[in-house]
Design a binder for these strands. Structure first.
Lengths: 186, 186
DNA sequence: TACTAAACTGACTAATCAGTCTAATAATAA
DNA sequence: TTATTATTAGACTGATTAGTCAGTTTAGTA
């Protein structure tokens, strides 16, 4: 990716999160990125294309860190906590990216295409869930309820640490995870 | 409230949820409500005042249904489930209102004043939580974690039923609540 | 060195924005 | 009835918007 393209995306990411999609003008993005408006439209044909590109970029940036497979010598709980923690740490280290994904996901901008791409990302979790149920470690509830519960818990944990950053530590992380785990486990 | 004022608020509520604050023009709100733009600005001095009025109105509309006190002859679990269910049903019956509260709450529009008003709303929950801990029914984790967990669970349950409205029923509601309850209870 | 294509610029435009203003109408009171 | 006030209308304004375009700079190639 070219340097100016990168700068445009970084500026757009920050401004979109702080001021919303419509609240941010292309002129402001270009100014913040230190480029001319023409340059912005050279790389992204429309504002909407910029928004969608940014979504795919941030989502890829997040899920690329979640790729590692489960370690067979560890328990389901340990493995789940590993994945759960990765999401927490990613969002603490990349607050704008995480916030952007959240905002975008509940906005009218999301196209059915990008929605589909997100769905497939849950396949790995489905495998874990099925194994957990089979081994009598997890409750047998509709998978879609389980996945919403998983995400909801991650998001609320992140909200907590965003509100009270000074509380970030192993003890509170463990307690937040225990709430989640005791909910899903048998 | 005058009829046209009401119409303006209803139109604004729907459009804000569907297209965002900046994405919705005052002209479109007036057109949808069937009034002239002048009428809109007669009732609301600015667009921002309209947004804030709408927030206070929807929030009041939601919390007025949650006012009932806990019933002493019922268990903590039953009481909590009653409150939890009320939120679920409110959002299913008033999807725009609930969505608007969510969007507004994570937007730059929210002022410190309205933020304070929301905080006090959690006082009732704090009392319940303290009693639950004292009676050895609830885990002793920081209250702020508990409250985020409570909200997160409600929101993810609502997300689930919004995605799959045909799944709305006592069985799935019970299962979703059991996830929550098993997380918080000892 | 000369040539070419891509990267880049910023002034510009048509459309749209929030908000104003004057005037018309409806409601109420004397 | 007449006077007064609250309500409604929509054309209008200056500012801002997304996007264009004609031209300049940069980088690679032969």
């Amino acid at each position: 990716m070219k340097e100016k393209e990168q700068k445009i995306m970084e500026a757009a990411l920050q401004l979109f999160v702080e001021k919303g999609f419509h609240g941010t003008s292309t002129a402001e993005i270009a100014r913040t990125a230190g480029v001319a408006t023409g340059t912005l439209f050279h790389y992204f044909k429309t504002k909407e294309e910029l928004i969608n590109s940014l979504y795919l970029y941030t989502k890829e940036s997040m899920f690329s860190q979640m790729k590692e497979h489960f370690e067979v010598d560890k328990s389901l709980k340990e493995n789940l906590k590993g994945l759960w923690s990765k999401f927490i740490y990613f969002s603490m280290e990349n607050p704008y990216k995480f916030q952007f994904i959240l905002i975008f996901h509940t906005s009218p901008y999301i196209t059915s295409l990008t929605k589909e791409q997100l769905e497939t990302q849950t396949d790995a979790l489905l495998t874990v869930y099925k194994k957990g149920v089979h081994d009598n470690e997890l409750k047998e509830v509709p998978f879609e309820i389980m996945i919403e519960y998983f995400w909801g818990n991650i998001i609320s944990t992140i909200n907590y640490f965003n509100k009270y950053p000074e509380k970030l530590g192993d003890k509170n992380l463990d307690q937040a995870f225990e709430l989640f785990w005791d909910g899903v486990s048998l």
